[in-house]
Design a binder for these strands. Structure first.
Lengths: 126, 126
DNA sequence: CGGCATCCATACCGATACTG
DNA sequence: CAGTATCGGTATGGATGCCG
């Protein structure tokens, strides 16, 4: 049986790849990494830029990304304190795949929305 | 102001791209599309293949994918009924970006896990 | 076989208040 | 500025039972 093009079976539970994929399959994590791709940002700047994220979720997500080795957190002893978040080299290698995904979303969102409307129209007809 | 490399600002709330990205940022949706990339499958086959997914979530996710125009649902009037799910041409164009992401996960999961252990060790020290 | 309906636990998330 | 802590509503997901 063909287990796909991957050495590990991504469909298996407990597959390490799936755990990593799990983290990437996070709306805010993806958006934050995209935002940081252009350069380091401070906490509240990030909060303002990525609209709709709450301070709590921002904090939690950044901590996860830091734990995964995708983001560094640097504290500058100014008054008041300044904290800067930046992508690690590891995260830089992730940039292209993620941007490929957003490019797909950009160029196909109209097709998706058309499909949704057609689907909803069909559902409403019944 | 630079809104990034995209015509729409993906960081904006209500951005259509972000809505699409939202759907893609779904663990099960990604795994199901990967599984269907090799060819159409029936409901319970999909359920067995993608380990850990419950029948409820599988059903919900497939319905979302169908609504987004990414998956087709075909019913064959056999006894008992046979239902086959397949990727649409639209989803085919998504295949490469998604597989790029899984390839990244494959090749960098060890780095991620190492980062996690280092992070946890540092946290435990305090 | 391929679901849907229901119940229930818990995970999540926003709002708010407080701190170094 | 950059968080942590707590509370409460909501969404999510598993388990179970039933149906065409």
């Amino acid at each position: 049986m063909d287990a796909g093009p991957f050495p590990f079976d991504v469909y298996e539970d407990q597959c390490p790849t799936r755990m990593v994929l799990d983290r990437l399959a996070d709306k805010w994590a993806l958006l934050l990494m995209l935002r940081l791709a252009d350069g380091p940002l401070r906490f509240n700047q990030l909060r303002r830029d990525v609209k709709g994220i709450s301070q709590k979720v921002l904090s939690q997500t950044l901590k996860k990304l830091e734990r995964d080795g995708l983001v560094t957190r640097t504290v500058y002893p100014t008054v008041p304190v300044t904290v800067e978040y930046a992508l690690t080299p590891l995260a830089q290698t992730l940039r292209e795949p993620v941007e490929a995904l957003t490019r797909w979303a950009e160029s196909h969102m109209d097709a998706v929305q058309a499909a949704q409307q057609a689907y909803d129209a069909g559902a409403a007809a019944r």
